[in-house]
Nucleic acid binder design. Sequence first.
DNA 1: CTGGATCCCAATAGATACTG
DNA 2: CAGTATCTATTGGGATCCAG
Lengths: 134, 134
Amino acid sequence: MKNKTKMRETGCPVAYGLDTFGDRWSFLILRDMMIRDKKTYGELLEMEEEIATNVLADRLKQLEAADIISKVRDPENRRSYIYSMTAKGYDLAPILTEIMVWSGEYDQRPFALRNVPDLIKKDRKGFLAKISGG
Amino acid sequence: MKNKTKMRETGCPVAYGLDTFGDRWSFLILRDMMIRDKKTYGELLEMEEEIATNVLADRLKQLEAADIISKVRDPENRRSYIYSMTAKGYDLAPILTEIMVWSGEYDQRPFALRNVPDLIKKDRKGFLAKISGG
DNA sequence: CTGGATCCCAATAGATACTG
DNA sequence: CAGTATCTATTGGGATCCAG
């Protein structure tokens, strides 16, 4: 685990949140786990944003240390691990949702995908329910 | 402006959001502007998390380039600038709110401030209205 | 003065090659 | 499959410099 950037102990909840998941990759992992139901290192590695192996390994460790995800050995495949969200992790779903809504509103690049945020806006509670808790 | 990390052009709204504000400092600046009503470089520099001058200058540029904030000269003090949120910036308020709610729920360190998140949970709409648009 | 820009350099993040 | 090792690029802290 490389990222030893010290936690900012000001008590501010915004600072705590950013110290925990405030980087360019953590929420992409959580997106794949919550929305795309990915469960293994190999599945996560295939994300289209092309995360590097060490970055993925590092973030998985950090997220596990923060009790946002947990890992167990795959009972059906002894050399694989199954990652899953904890309750604390699923409670990040509202943040993920709001990020998608905002970006869906403002990403004007031609290839931007807006259908998902549209879906959320039509039924935010349904979407949240779907990704919160599996 | 240091941060030339390329945008990930996958179309995913989560990736767009993270490319735009996914770092340890941007949302602390936005917190101070939205919640604490700070308007100048000097005021922002005083945040208790002790942002470095170069980092603050860099993030202000990035946020301005992303049309999240804008700057004008202070008409009452010709050697100062006034930063303010754009509509696109104020629309980040729901993300800020959800970060505060989550951290308020899970930051168990003794110095963690939980009164603000409690306030949000009692009246999320009121809080959002208060920080959205000044 | 305020609002930065610049520079140094330590610390982190990330790409790629390789391994148990 | 699930990482580690290694090496390079980028970020960030702190001091200092500079323009309006």
